[in-house]
Nucleic acid binder design. Structure first.
Length: 309
RNA sequence: GGCCCGAUAGCUCAGUCGGUAGAGCAGUGGAUUGAAAAUUCACGUGUCGGCGGUUCAAAUCCGUCUCGGGCCA
Protein backbone atom coordinates (compact mmCIF):
# COMPACT_ATOMS: atom_id res chain seq x y z
CA UNK A 1 0.00 0.00 0.00
CA UNK A 2 2.87 2.34 0.57
CA UNK A 3 0.90 5.35 1.64
CA UNK A 4 -0.26 6.71 4.93
CA UNK A 5 -2.78 9.36 5.55
CA UNK A 6 -0.67 10.91 8.21
CA UNK A 7 -3.81 12.30 9.76
CA UNK A 8 -4.50 9.47 12.12
CA UNK A 9 -7.90 7.92 12.20
CA UNK A 10 -9.67 8.38 8.87
CA UNK A 11 -12.99 8.87 10.54
CA UNK A 12 -13.37 11.29 13.37
CA UNK A 13 -13.80 8.73 16.04
CA UNK A 14 -13.42 5.04 15.63
CA UNK A 15 -16.70 4.49 17.41
CA UNK A 16 -18.78 5.93 14.62
CA UNK A 17 -17.79 3.09 12.36
CA UNK A 18 -19.94 0.56 14.10
CA UNK A 19 -22.94 2.43 15.37
CA UNK A 20 -24.52 1.50 18.66
CA UNK A 21 -27.60 0.50 16.76
CA UNK A 22 -25.75 -2.55 15.48
CA UNK A 23 -25.70 -4.00 18.98
CA UNK A 24 -29.46 -3.88 19.44
CA UNK A 25 -29.96 -5.20 16.01
CA UNK A 26 -28.37 -8.52 16.93
CA UNK A 27 -26.51 -9.87 13.93
CA UNK A 28 -26.69 -6.87 11.62
CA UNK A 29 -23.60 -4.78 11.26
CA UNK A 30 -24.14 -1.58 9.33
CA UNK A 31 -21.94 -1.36 6.26
CA UNK A 32 -19.53 1.48 5.95
CA UNK A 33 -18.91 3.27 2.67
CA UNK A 34 -15.53 4.53 1.53
CA UNK A 35 -15.97 6.70 -1.55
CA UNK A 36 -13.98 9.27 -3.43
CA UNK A 37 -12.49 10.03 -6.80
CA UNK A 38 -10.08 7.72 -8.50
CA UNK A 39 -6.53 7.81 -7.12
CA UNK A 40 -7.66 9.49 -3.93
CA UNK A 41 -6.43 6.60 -1.80
CA UNK A 42 -9.63 4.71 -1.07
CA UNK A 43 -8.07 1.27 -1.07
CA UNK A 44 -5.41 1.87 1.51
CA UNK A 45 -7.75 3.82 3.73
CA UNK A 46 -10.26 0.99 3.52
CA UNK A 47 -7.63 -1.50 4.57
CA UNK A 48 -6.65 0.66 7.48
CA UNK A 49 -10.28 0.87 8.57
CA UNK A 50 -10.83 -2.84 8.12
CA UNK A 51 -7.86 -3.75 10.25
CA UNK A 52 -8.94 -1.41 12.97
CA UNK A 53 -12.58 -2.40 13.06
CA UNK A 54 -12.81 -6.03 12.01
CA UNK A 55 -14.01 -5.13 8.60
CA UNK A 56 -13.92 -6.80 5.26
CA UNK A 57 -13.62 -4.90 2.03
CA UNK A 58 -16.25 -5.07 -0.68
CA UNK A 59 -15.65 -3.68 -4.13
CA UNK A 60 -17.82 -0.89 -5.52
CA UNK A 61 -15.87 -0.22 -8.67
CA UNK A 62 -17.35 -1.12 -12.04
CA UNK A 63 -14.08 -2.14 -13.63
CA UNK A 64 -12.34 -3.78 -10.73
CA UNK A 65 -15.10 -6.35 -11.00
CA UNK A 66 -13.29 -7.78 -14.01
CA UNK A 67 -10.64 -10.41 -14.06
CA UNK A 68 -7.59 -9.57 -16.12
CA UNK A 69 -7.96 -5.82 -15.77
CA UNK A 70 -6.26 -5.51 -12.40
CA UNK A 71 -3.46 -3.19 -13.41
CA UNK A 72 -5.40 -0.84 -15.65
CA UNK A 73 -8.27 -0.62 -13.18
CA UNK A 74 -5.87 -0.09 -10.27
CA UNK A 75 -7.39 -2.91 -8.27
CA UNK A 76 -5.89 -3.65 -4.86
CA UNK A 77 -2.74 -5.72 -5.25
CA UNK A 78 -2.39 -9.28 -3.98
CA UNK A 79 -0.21 -7.89 -1.24
CA UNK A 80 -2.89 -5.46 -0.16
CA UNK A 81 -5.54 -8.14 -0.32
CA UNK A 82 -3.47 -10.30 1.96
CA UNK A 83 -3.95 -7.87 4.84
CA UNK A 84 -7.68 -8.22 5.01
CA UNK A 85 -10.40 -10.14 3.11
CA UNK A 86 -11.46 -8.49 -0.15
CA UNK A 87 -14.65 -9.34 -1.99
CA UNK A 88 -15.90 -8.90 -5.56
CA UNK A 89 -12.57 -8.11 -7.14
CA UNK A 90 -11.90 -9.87 -10.42
CA UNK A 91 -15.08 -11.93 -10.26
CA UNK A 92 -16.34 -11.28 -13.77
CA UNK A 93 -14.92 -12.62 -16.97
CA UNK A 94 -14.00 -9.81 -19.37
CA UNK A 95 -16.45 -11.21 -21.88
CA UNK A 96 -19.37 -10.68 -19.50
CA UNK A 97 -20.92 -7.28 -19.32
CA UNK A 98 -21.80 -5.75 -16.01
CA UNK A 99 -24.34 -3.12 -15.08
CA UNK A 100 -25.62 -1.55 -11.91
CA UNK A 101 -28.37 -4.10 -11.54
CA UNK A 102 -26.00 -7.03 -11.82
CA UNK A 103 -23.70 -5.35 -9.36
CA UNK A 104 -26.46 -5.09 -6.77
CA UNK A 105 -27.32 -8.71 -7.36
CA UNK A 106 -23.73 -9.71 -6.71
CA UNK A 107 -23.00 -7.44 -3.81
CA UNK A 108 -26.03 -7.95 -1.61
CA UNK A 109 -25.35 -11.58 -0.71
CA UNK A 110 -21.71 -10.75 -0.11
CA UNK A 111 -22.63 -7.99 2.32
CA UNK A 112 -25.14 -10.23 4.08
CA UNK A 113 -22.60 -12.99 4.41
CA UNK A 114 -20.03 -10.68 5.98
CA UNK A 115 -22.64 -9.33 8.36
CA UNK A 116 -23.68 -12.83 9.33
CA UNK A 117 -20.17 -13.40 10.58
CA UNK A 118 -20.39 -10.26 12.66
CA UNK A 119 -17.92 -8.37 10.53
CA UNK A 120 -18.34 -4.91 9.06
CA UNK A 121 -18.66 -4.65 5.31
CA UNK A 122 -16.51 -1.80 4.11
CA UNK A 123 -17.80 -0.93 0.70
CA UNK A 124 -15.09 0.76 -1.26
CA UNK A 125 -15.20 2.25 -4.70
CA UNK A 126 -15.89 5.16 -6.96
CA UNK A 127 -18.69 4.01 -9.23
CA UNK A 128 -21.40 6.42 -8.20
CA UNK A 129 -24.28 4.79 -9.99
CA UNK A 130 -23.46 1.33 -8.65
CA UNK A 131 -23.29 2.71 -5.15
CA UNK A 132 -26.53 4.58 -5.65
CA UNK A 133 -28.32 1.44 -6.68
CA UNK A 134 -26.96 -0.38 -3.70
CA UNK A 135 -27.80 2.32 -1.20
CA UNK A 136 -31.07 3.67 -2.58
CA UNK A 137 -32.59 0.80 -4.49
CA UNK A 138 -33.81 0.54 -8.04
CA UNK A 139 -37.08 1.21 -9.78
CA UNK A 140 -38.68 -1.86 -11.37
CA UNK A 141 -37.41 -1.37 -14.90
CA UNK A 142 -36.59 -3.80 -17.67
CA UNK A 143 -32.99 -4.85 -18.05
CA UNK A 144 -30.99 -3.50 -20.97
CA UNK A 145 -31.36 -5.45 -24.17
CA UNK A 146 -28.25 -5.73 -26.30
CA UNK A 147 -30.08 -6.42 -29.55
CA UNK A 148 -32.44 -3.50 -29.10
CA UNK A 149 -29.56 -1.22 -28.24
CA UNK A 150 -27.64 -2.28 -31.31
CA UNK A 151 -30.69 -1.53 -33.37
CA UNK A 152 -31.15 1.88 -31.79
CA UNK A 153 -27.49 2.68 -32.30
CA UNK A 154 -28.09 2.47 -36.04
CA UNK A 155 -30.82 5.08 -35.96
CA UNK A 156 -30.29 8.81 -35.99
CA UNK A 157 -30.76 10.50 -32.65
CA UNK A 158 -33.62 12.71 -33.87
CA UNK A 159 -35.43 9.57 -34.80
CA UNK A 160 -35.14 8.16 -31.29
CA UNK A 161 -36.13 11.48 -29.80
CA UNK A 162 -39.20 11.63 -32.02
CA UNK A 163 -40.28 8.15 -31.01
CA UNK A 164 -39.71 8.78 -27.33
CA UNK A 165 -41.61 12.04 -27.52
CA UNK A 166 -44.51 10.23 -29.10
CA UNK A 167 -44.56 7.30 -26.69
CA UNK A 168 -43.80 9.21 -23.54
CA UNK A 169 -43.77 13.00 -23.77
CA UNK A 170 -43.31 13.38 -20.03
CA UNK A 171 -40.13 11.35 -20.03
CA UNK A 172 -38.92 13.14 -23.15
CA UNK A 173 -39.41 16.49 -21.48
CA UNK A 174 -37.17 15.58 -18.58
CA UNK A 175 -34.51 13.76 -20.51
CA UNK A 176 -31.40 15.43 -21.86
CA UNK A 177 -32.29 14.88 -25.48
CA UNK A 178 -28.79 15.51 -26.78
CA UNK A 179 -27.63 12.56 -24.76
CA UNK A 180 -28.05 9.53 -26.96
CA UNK A 181 -27.50 7.16 -24.06
CA UNK A 182 -30.24 8.65 -21.97
CA UNK A 183 -32.68 8.88 -24.85
CA UNK A 184 -32.19 5.29 -25.90
CA UNK A 185 -32.49 3.96 -22.37
CA UNK A 186 -35.76 5.83 -21.88
CA UNK A 187 -37.02 4.51 -25.19
CA UNK A 188 -35.78 1.04 -24.33
CA UNK A 189 -37.83 1.06 -21.14
CA UNK A 190 -40.95 2.03 -23.06
CA UNK A 191 -40.45 -0.55 -25.77
CA UNK A 192 -39.49 -3.41 -23.49
CA UNK A 193 -42.15 -2.83 -20.87
CA UNK A 194 -44.92 -1.58 -23.08
CA UNK A 195 -45.43 1.15 -20.52
CA UNK A 196 -44.31 4.70 -20.11
CA UNK A 197 -40.86 5.11 -18.68
CA UNK A 198 -42.12 8.14 -16.81
CA UNK A 199 -44.64 5.97 -14.97
CA UNK A 200 -42.12 3.30 -14.07
CA UNK A 201 -39.18 5.46 -13.36
CA UNK A 202 -39.54 7.22 -10.07
CA UNK A 203 -37.16 9.82 -8.90
CA UNK A 204 -35.33 8.51 -5.90
CA UNK A 205 -35.39 11.92 -4.30
CA UNK A 206 -38.48 10.85 -2.34
CA UNK A 207 -36.85 8.00 -0.53
CA UNK A 208 -33.44 9.57 -0.37
CA UNK A 209 -33.85 11.44 2.88
CA UNK A 210 -34.97 8.53 5.00
CA UNK A 211 -32.64 6.02 3.43
CA UNK A 212 -29.70 8.36 3.53
CA UNK A 213 -30.13 8.98 7.23
CA UNK A 214 -29.35 5.31 7.83
CA UNK A 215 -26.21 5.29 5.75
CA UNK A 216 -22.70 5.76 6.97
CA UNK A 217 -19.61 6.54 5.06
CA UNK A 218 -17.23 9.19 3.88
CA UNK A 219 -15.96 10.66 0.68
CA UNK A 220 -12.28 11.42 0.37
CA UNK A 221 -11.49 14.95 -0.70
CA UNK A 222 -8.18 16.20 -1.96
CA UNK A 223 -7.10 19.35 -3.71
CA UNK A 224 -7.08 19.12 -7.48
CA UNK A 225 -3.35 19.65 -7.63
CA UNK A 226 -2.78 16.82 -5.19
CA UNK A 227 -5.16 14.53 -7.02
CA UNK A 228 -3.60 15.33 -10.38
CA UNK A 229 -0.17 14.57 -9.05
CA UNK A 230 -1.35 11.25 -7.66
CA UNK A 231 -2.99 10.38 -10.95
CA UNK A 232 0.20 11.09 -12.88
CA UNK A 233 2.17 8.95 -10.48
CA UNK A 234 -0.26 6.11 -10.74
CA UNK A 235 -0.39 6.19 -14.52
CA UNK A 236 3.40 6.02 -14.64
CA UNK A 237 3.31 3.06 -12.34
CA UNK A 238 0.72 1.27 -14.45
CA UNK A 239 2.67 1.68 -17.65
CA UNK A 240 5.85 0.53 -15.95
CA UNK A 241 4.06 -2.19 -14.06
CA UNK A 242 2.63 -4.41 -16.74
CA UNK A 243 -0.29 -2.52 -18.23
CA UNK A 244 0.96 -3.21 -21.74
CA UNK A 245 1.02 -6.95 -21.21
CA UNK A 246 -2.34 -6.87 -19.52
CA UNK A 247 -4.02 -5.00 -22.34
CA UNK A 248 -2.32 -7.15 -24.96
CA UNK A 249 -3.71 -10.27 -23.32
CA UNK A 250 -7.14 -8.76 -22.84
CA UNK A 251 -7.46 -7.34 -26.33
CA UNK A 252 -7.32 -10.85 -27.69
CA UNK A 253 -10.30 -12.12 -25.77
CA UNK A 254 -12.62 -9.19 -25.49
CA UNK A 255 -13.31 -5.61 -26.35
CA UNK A 256 -15.67 -5.46 -23.45
CA UNK A 257 -13.27 -3.50 -21.32
CA UNK A 258 -12.76 -0.91 -23.99
CA UNK A 259 -14.51 1.63 -21.83
CA UNK A 260 -11.90 1.33 -19.13
CA UNK A 261 -9.61 4.33 -19.04
CA UNK A 262 -6.21 3.16 -20.11
CA UNK A 263 -7.40 0.28 -22.22
CA UNK A 264 -7.86 2.17 -25.47
CA UNK A 265 -4.81 4.30 -24.92
CA UNK A 266 -2.54 1.35 -24.23
CA UNK A 267 -3.95 -0.55 -27.15
CA UNK A 268 -3.16 2.42 -29.39
CA UNK A 269 0.35 2.38 -28.01
CA UNK A 270 0.67 -1.33 -28.70
CA UNK A 271 -0.55 -0.77 -32.25
CA UNK A 272 2.09 1.88 -32.73
CA UNK A 273 -0.49 4.61 -33.25
CA UNK A 274 0.85 6.81 -30.47
CA UNK A 275 4.09 6.98 -28.54
CA UNK A 276 4.53 6.26 -24.90
CA UNK A 277 4.48 9.83 -23.62
CA UNK A 278 1.33 10.60 -25.61
CA UNK A 279 -0.26 7.48 -24.21
CA UNK A 280 0.66 8.52 -20.71
CA UNK A 281 -0.74 12.02 -21.16
CA UNK A 282 -3.97 10.75 -22.70
CA UNK A 283 -4.52 8.41 -19.77
CA UNK A 284 -3.77 11.18 -17.32
CA UNK A 285 -6.21 13.56 -18.96
CA UNK A 286 -8.98 10.97 -19.13
CA UNK A 287 -8.40 10.05 -15.52
CA UNK A 288 -8.47 13.66 -14.37
CA UNK A 289 -11.76 14.19 -16.16
CA UNK A 290 -13.18 11.06 -14.62
CA UNK A 291 -12.11 12.14 -11.17
CA UNK A 292 -13.86 15.45 -11.68
CA UNK A 293 -17.08 13.72 -12.69
CA UNK A 294 -16.85 11.54 -9.60
CA UNK A 295 -16.44 14.56 -7.40
CA UNK A 296 -19.54 16.09 -8.99
CA UNK A 297 -21.46 12.91 -8.31
CA UNK A 298 -20.39 12.51 -4.71
CA UNK A 299 -21.01 16.16 -3.94
CA UNK A 300 -24.69 15.37 -4.27
CA UNK A 301 -24.55 12.46 -1.88
CA UNK A 302 -25.03 14.56 1.18
CA UNK A 303 -24.97 11.62 3.54
CA UNK A 304 -21.30 11.07 2.81
CA UNK A 305 -19.13 12.75 5.34
CA UNK A 306 -16.29 14.69 3.72
CA UNK A 307 -12.88 13.45 4.70
CA UNK A 308 -10.21 15.92 3.66
CA UNK A 309 -6.73 14.56 3.07
C1' G B 1 28.06 36.82 -41.25
C1' G B 2 23.93 36.65 -45.38
C1' C B 3 19.08 35.01 -46.74
C1' C B 4 14.35 32.61 -45.75
C1' C B 5 10.34 30.86 -42.50
C1' G B 6 7.97 31.16 -37.83
C1' A B 7 6.45 33.82 -32.96
C1' U B 8 -1.56 34.79 -31.67
C1' A B 9 -5.34 31.44 -25.18
C1' G B 10 -1.91 26.62 -20.61
C1' C B 11 -0.80 23.46 -25.63
C1' U B 12 -1.43 22.88 -31.20
C1' C B 13 -2.89 26.25 -34.54
C1' A B 14 -6.66 29.50 -37.78
C1' G B 15 -7.27 34.59 -38.82
C1' U B 16 -9.54 36.65 -46.29
C1' C B 17 -8.99 42.99 -49.52
C1' G B 18 -5.98 46.65 -42.78
C1' G B 19 -11.82 47.64 -39.17
C1' U B 20 -8.47 45.83 -31.89
C1' A B 21 -9.31 37.76 -32.59
C1' G B 22 -11.55 32.08 -32.64
C1' A B 23 -11.22 26.65 -33.23
C1' G B 24 -9.51 21.93 -31.27
C1' C B 25 -7.24 20.01 -26.99
C1' A B 26 -6.34 20.99 -21.81
C1' G B 27 -8.95 23.22 -17.65
C1' U B 28 -13.54 24.62 -14.69
C1' G B 29 -18.75 23.93 -13.38
C1' G B 30 -23.27 20.98 -14.18
C1' A B 31 -26.33 16.59 -15.39
C1' U B 32 -26.69 11.38 -14.19
C1' U B 33 -32.91 5.77 -12.23
C1' G B 34 -29.87 -1.34 -14.97
C1' A B 35 -23.81 0.72 -20.78
C1' A B 36 -21.47 4.90 -15.65
C1' A B 37 -13.76 4.52 -15.93
C1' A B 38 -19.85 5.30 -19.91
C1' U B 39 -22.71 9.29 -21.94
C1' U B 40 -23.83 14.41 -22.05
C1' C B 41 -24.45 20.11 -21.39
C1' A B 42 -22.30 24.93 -20.40
C1' C B 43 -18.05 28.21 -19.92
C1' G B 44 -13.20 31.54 -24.74
C1' U B 45 -9.89 39.11 -22.78
C1' G B 46 -5.34 36.99 -24.74
C1' U B 47 0.82 42.73 -23.50
C1' C B 48 -1.65 38.82 -31.23
C1' G B 49 7.14 38.32 -29.21
C1' G B 50 9.35 43.82 -27.97
C1' C B 51 9.99 48.84 -29.73
C1' G B 52 9.16 52.41 -33.45
C1' G B 53 6.68 53.98 -38.14
C1' U B 54 2.57 54.46 -42.02
C1' U B 55 -2.85 54.97 -41.41
C1' C B 56 -9.02 57.68 -39.20
C1' A B 57 -7.90 52.43 -37.98
C1' A B 58 -2.42 47.42 -37.63
C1' A B 59 -2.45 40.48 -35.41
C1' U B 60 -2.52 42.09 -40.67
C1' C B 61 1.68 46.94 -44.15
C1' C B 62 7.05 49.02 -43.32
C1' G B 63 11.59 49.30 -40.23
C1' U B 64 14.28 47.34 -36.27
C1' C B 65 15.48 44.18 -32.15
C1' U B 66 14.85 39.37 -29.47
C1' C B 67 14.02 34.15 -29.57
C1' G B 68 13.16 29.50 -32.37
C1' G B 69 13.79 26.59 -37.06
C1' G B 70 15.98 26.11 -41.81
C1' C B 71 19.23 27.25 -46.01
C1' C B 72 23.85 29.50 -47.87
C1' A B 73 28.69 30.65 -46.39
Amino acid sequence: MGERTGTGDPIRSGDTLVPARACDDRSVVTPYYVCGPTASGKSSLAIELALKHHGEIVNADAFQLYRGLEIVSAAPSAEEQAHVPHHLYGVLDPTESADAQLYVKLVKPVIAEIQSRGKTPIITGGSGLYLKFLTHGAAPLPTGDAALRAEMDERPLEDLVAQLTKLDPVEASRTALQNRRFVSRALEICLLSGQKASDLRDGWEKQTAEISSQLRGFVIQRTRADLHARIALRTRGMLDGGALEEVAALAEISNNCEKAIGFREVRALLNGEIDRSTCEELINAATRQYAKRQETWFRREKWLEPHVL
